[in-house]
Amino acid sequence: MLIYNPLMSSSNLIKIIIALAIGIGLGLMYGWVIDPIEYVDVTPNILREDYRVDYVLMTAEAYQKDFDSETAARRLAILGSESPATITANALEYAMSHNFTQVEVQTLQTLLTAMQTYIP
């Protein structure tokens, strides 16, 4: 611990403060950039948006086969606390703005309609 020493010159004090700041900077760089904490076992709510949308699309494709709203809603629920309709609407918006095929957009639209009318 640095203790105030009246004999320490102000220039030395400045050097110590600068060294401390450099040390903190290096430490932050190490912890955030060079060797950041690696996450495993994450939950789907932090999936990158394109993966989330693809997951919703898969759910929509499956829904086209079984028309099981409850199963679809349960599958969407793992993506976060938003309602299944909101999750699907966000995915549909993404699909529209990223040149998804017409079939895929339509599939998502069908799921959205189902989720908007779904009552748990």
Partner: peptide
Amino acid sequence: HIVFALLIGLGIGVAYSW
């Protein structure tokens, strides 16, 4: 003192970022 301050800063930075 300077080396000591550098090491302390390094420790603080790593602890904060981790």
